[in-house]
Structures are given as C-alpha cells and as structure tokens.
C-alpha cells in the first residue's frame, strides 16, 4: 500500500470511499485497468429510448401480468 498522500487526498478521503481513495488504491494496484469500466459508464440510455423500447416490444410498465 502506497504511503504518499496529499493534503487534498486527506481532505477528500474523509468523505469516504471516493475518487481519491480509488486513486490511492490504483497507485498500489497498477495492474488494474479501468478503461472498460470508464467506457461502459459512457453507455447512456435516455428515458425516451426506454419508452420506445417498452412500446416497441409490446411491454407495459407496471404490467404485473407477465405472460404476454
């Protein structure tokens, strides 16, 4: 585990497991690659796309019936 911690990291880490703690963790786990994690987080779906998907698939939100 790395021991180099900046003042900013201390201030922000006090708020919990967050970006700064992740950065500190990554310093000690350089083999971990977050490229695909970052990439999958860019895959967005808008509410309109969901609505179209529901309608286009003969689905009904809050249907409760199932077997359609």
């Amino acid at each position: 585990m790395g021991t180099s911690v900046t003042g900013k990291e201390i201030a922000l880490a006090g708020k919990g497991f967050n970006e700064e703690v992740e950065a500190q963790y990554r310093k000690s786990n350089k083999n971990l690659d977050y490229t695909w994690i970052n990439q999958m987080e860019t895959m967005k779906v808008s509410p309109e796309q969901v609505e179209d998907f529901i309608a286009g698939g003969n689905l009904v939100f809050d249907a409760e019936g199932g077997n359609q």
Partner: peptide, 8 residues
C-alpha cells in the same frame, strides 16, 4: 412481471 415479460 412489472414490465410485462414472460417470467417463465
């Protein structure tokens, strides 16, 4: 069930 899929 909530979305109308066949849960089977």
């Amino acid at each position: 069930k909530r979305i109308g899929y066949n849960h089977a």
